[in-house]
Amino acid sequence: MSEPRFSVGQRVQIADRTPPVHHRVPSYAKGHVGVVERVCGMHANPELCIRGDGKPFQRIYRVRIPQTDLWAPYEGTDGDKLEIEIFEHWLELAQ
Protein backbone atom coordinates (compact mmCIF):
# COMPACT_ATOMS: atom_id res chain seq x y z
CA MET A 1 0.00 0.00 0.00
CA SER A 2 1.53 3.28 -1.03
CA GLU A 3 1.00 6.34 1.12
CA PRO A 4 -1.85 8.61 -0.01
CA ARG A 5 -0.61 11.49 -2.14
CA PHE A 6 -3.45 13.76 -1.01
CA SER A 7 -5.09 14.39 2.33
CA VAL A 8 -8.53 15.42 3.51
CA GLY A 9 -9.22 19.10 2.86
CA GLN A 10 -6.70 19.56 0.05
CA ARG A 11 -7.89 21.20 -3.16
CA VAL A 12 -7.43 18.91 -6.13
CA GLN A 13 -8.11 19.19 -9.84
CA ILE A 14 -9.53 16.30 -11.85
CA ALA A 15 -7.67 15.70 -15.12
CA ASP A 16 -9.45 16.65 -18.34
CA ARG A 17 -8.59 13.78 -20.63
CA THR A 18 -10.36 10.95 -22.40
CA PRO A 19 -8.27 7.79 -22.72
CA PRO A 20 -9.57 5.38 -25.39
CA VAL A 21 -10.40 2.76 -22.77
CA HIS A 22 -13.04 2.21 -20.12
CA HIS A 23 -12.51 4.77 -17.38
CA ARG A 24 -14.59 5.85 -14.42
CA VAL A 25 -14.52 9.65 -14.63
CA PRO A 26 -17.71 11.14 -16.05
CA SER A 27 -17.26 14.00 -18.54
CA TYR A 28 -19.11 16.49 -16.38
CA ALA A 29 -16.44 16.28 -13.65
CA LYS A 30 -13.34 16.45 -15.87
CA GLY A 31 -11.20 19.53 -15.31
CA HIS A 32 -13.06 20.58 -12.17
CA VAL A 33 -11.55 21.47 -8.82
CA GLY A 34 -12.82 20.06 -5.55
CA VAL A 35 -11.77 19.29 -1.99
CA VAL A 36 -10.74 15.84 -0.77
CA GLU A 37 -13.63 14.71 1.45
CA ARG A 38 -12.23 11.28 2.31
CA VAL A 39 -9.22 9.12 1.52
CA CYS A 40 -10.35 5.63 0.53
CA GLY A 41 -8.60 2.33 -0.24
CA MET A 42 -6.56 0.96 -3.13
CA HIS A 43 -8.48 -0.61 -6.00
CA ALA A 44 -7.94 -2.07 -9.46
CA ASN A 45 -7.35 0.56 -12.11
CA PRO A 46 -10.30 0.17 -14.50
CA GLU A 47 -8.23 1.46 -17.42
CA LEU A 48 -5.93 -1.57 -17.07
CA CYS A 49 -8.55 -4.21 -16.34
CA ILE A 50 -9.17 -5.03 -19.99
CA ARG A 51 -5.60 -6.32 -20.27
CA GLY A 52 -5.27 -7.97 -16.90
CA ASP A 53 -5.92 -7.47 -13.25
CA GLY A 54 -5.86 -3.68 -13.03
CA LYS A 55 -2.49 -3.57 -11.26
CA PRO A 56 -0.88 -1.50 -9.94
CA PHE A 57 -3.91 -0.66 -7.82
CA GLN A 58 -4.69 3.02 -7.40
CA ARG A 59 -5.98 4.87 -4.38
CA ILE A 60 -9.49 6.32 -4.53
CA TYR A 61 -10.44 9.71 -3.09
CA ARG A 62 -13.87 11.18 -2.56
CA VAL A 63 -13.83 14.68 -4.01
CA ARG A 64 -16.42 17.31 -3.09
CA ILE A 65 -17.27 19.89 -5.77
CA PRO A 66 -19.70 22.83 -5.42
CA GLN A 67 -22.68 22.28 -7.70
CA THR A 68 -22.51 25.93 -8.74
CA ASP A 69 -19.02 25.26 -10.19
CA LEU A 70 -20.21 22.25 -12.19
CA TRP A 71 -23.33 23.68 -13.75
CA ALA A 72 -24.43 27.05 -15.05
CA PRO A 73 -27.07 28.04 -14.50
CA TYR A 74 -27.68 25.89 -11.42
CA GLU A 75 -31.03 25.84 -9.62
CA GLY A 76 -30.00 25.49 -5.99
CA THR A 77 -27.83 26.99 -3.30
CA ASP A 78 -24.11 27.64 -2.85
CA GLY A 79 -24.14 24.90 -0.21
CA ASP A 80 -25.18 22.17 -2.67
CA LYS A 81 -22.33 19.78 -3.40
CA LEU A 82 -21.51 16.85 -5.60
CA GLU A 83 -19.27 14.12 -4.20
CA ILE A 84 -17.51 11.72 -6.52
CA GLU A 85 -14.92 8.93 -6.38
CA ILE A 86 -11.74 9.66 -8.32
CA PHE A 87 -8.62 7.49 -8.71
CA GLU A 88 -5.34 9.08 -7.62
CA HIS A 89 -3.77 9.16 -11.10
CA TRP A 90 -6.58 11.48 -12.22
CA LEU A 91 -5.80 14.10 -9.55
CA GLU A 92 -3.28 16.93 -9.16
CA LEU A 93 -3.03 19.55 -6.46
CA ALA A 94 -5.08 22.55 -7.59
CA GLN A 95 -3.23 25.76 -8.33
Binding site: R24, I60, T77, D80, L82, I84, E85
Partner: peptide, 11 residues
Protein backbone atom coordinates in the same frame (compact mmCIF):
# COMPACT_ATOMS: atom_id res chain seq x y z
CA UNK B 1 -27.93 21.63 1.42
CA UNK B 2 -28.13 18.85 -1.15
CA UNK B 3 -25.28 16.39 -1.45
CA UNK B 4 -25.35 14.20 -4.53
CA UNK B 5 -23.09 11.15 -4.30
CA UNK B 6 -21.99 9.79 -7.66
CA UNK B 7 -21.02 6.15 -7.22
CA UNK B 8 -18.35 6.15 -9.94
CA UNK B 9 -15.89 3.50 -8.75
CA UNK B 10 -15.50 1.02 -5.90
CA UNK B 11 -17.67 2.57 -3.20
Amino acid sequence: DVRVHDSTAEL
